[in-house]
């Protein structure tokens, strides 16, 4: 087990190195930069050069890369080029707890609704309950979240003034973003859960359990769900990473001061250090989540054993 984890960590470090290097050079290859002369007609060219020099942008790209890597190894991701009074570490410190809070709530709700819906749909296959949950699941997957967000905002904020359009810090600010964030995961979990439950229900060991006279509740929860849950767990790895690091569209619409908004703005502003920092953070987080999922397999799925 521990050897497996070490192996995975080494692989993750190598992947991170490639991720950082490729992102760095791609980012510098796209046209545009944080300080352009044409936009600032009021500044002398000399002054613009002085500003660029202060941020080390006057040096060749490979040198900027080496400087960046040297600092990164000490855990310093630099200062934002646009929000010059913030370091990237600070921005992540500000944004991640907020995106993470919405993400965790959305994941919990998605599991609480998604799994029972999927189980019911599979057990009552062909019934109205199955139809209803499948219709809901299809809608949840196919309508983009920003459309749902706009509709909810129109209904709850503009037409009835029940909820605020922006803000952060109170429960009422959470309601709409969380609903938007969890709809598509609920739909996905329902579908995954339904299909794997159906598959499991045809297995011999389920029939055997029933033949042995095990109670129906025990069959469903102990024998079927424990196996049927595995695809959901797999899905949970990337889902946790995606939800907890913030949705670009939802954070922009509801003015949530989270990571997603930093990311979008950094890309359009060519805020190199912030783009790098968030990419690294996101990359590391997604690797961590998938690793945790794989470890979780060992506990949930009795068939999985890590070879030493």
């Amino acid at each position: 087990m521990s050897r497996y984890i070490v192996k995975r960590l080494v692989a993750a470090i190598i992947s991170m190195f490639f991720l950082i290097t490729i992102t760095f050079f791609l980012m510098h290859a796209i046209p545009g930069g944080p300080f352009s002369a044409g936009e600032r007609k009021d500044l002398n060219p000399e002054i613009i050069e002085a500003i660029r020099a202060r941020y080390g942008l006057d040096q060749p790209v490979w040198k900027q890369y080496l400087n960046y890597m040297a600092k990164l190894l000490q855990g310093d991701m630099g200062v934002s080029y646009k929000k010059t009074n913030y370091t990237v570490n600070e921005l992540i410190g500000l944004g991640f707890p907020i995106s993470g809070e919405i993400g965790i709530i959305a994941i919990v709700i998605a599991l609480v609704f998604g799994i029972p819906l999927g189980v019911v749909a599979a057990l009552k296959r062909g019934s109205w309950a199955d139809m209803a949950s499948m219709i809901f699941a299809t809608i949840g997957i196919s309508i983009p979240t920003f459309v749902i967000a706009m509709l909810l905002m129109y209904e709850f904020c503009m037409k009835h003034s029940l909820l605020p359009t922006f803000g952060w810090g109170e429960i009422r600010h959470l309601i709409l973003p969380v609903i938007c964030m969890c709809l598509s995961p609920i739909a996905n979990i329902t579908r995954l859960c339904r299909s794997s439950m159906l598959e499991v229900s045809r297995q011999d060991y389920v029939r055997t359990a029933r033949a042995k006279g095990v109670g129906e509740g025990s069959v469903i929860f102990k024998h079927m769900l424990r196996n049927a849950i595995l695809p959901v767990v797999t899905y949970l790895g990337p889902l946790v990473a995606a939800l907890m690091t913030g949705s670009f569209a939802i954070e922009r619409l509801f003015m949530i001061p989270g990571m997603g908004r930093y990311f979008v703005n950094a890309v359009t502003d060519r805020d190199y250090t912030v783009i790098m920092g968030l990419t690294i953070f996101y990359g590391a987080f997604i690797m961590l989540c998938t690793l945790l999922v794989d470890i979780a397999y060992a506990f949930i799925d009795p068939r999985v054993r890590f070879e030493d």
């Binding site: 904020c157 503009m158 605020p164 359009t165 922009r252 509801f254 003015m255 908004r261 703005n265």
Partner: peptide
Amino acid sequence: FIWIDDEAVELASYKNGD
């Protein structure tokens, strides 16, 4: 001073008095 990225949201916020 409230920051609202999207014009449509700004209009919605103005209409509902936020």
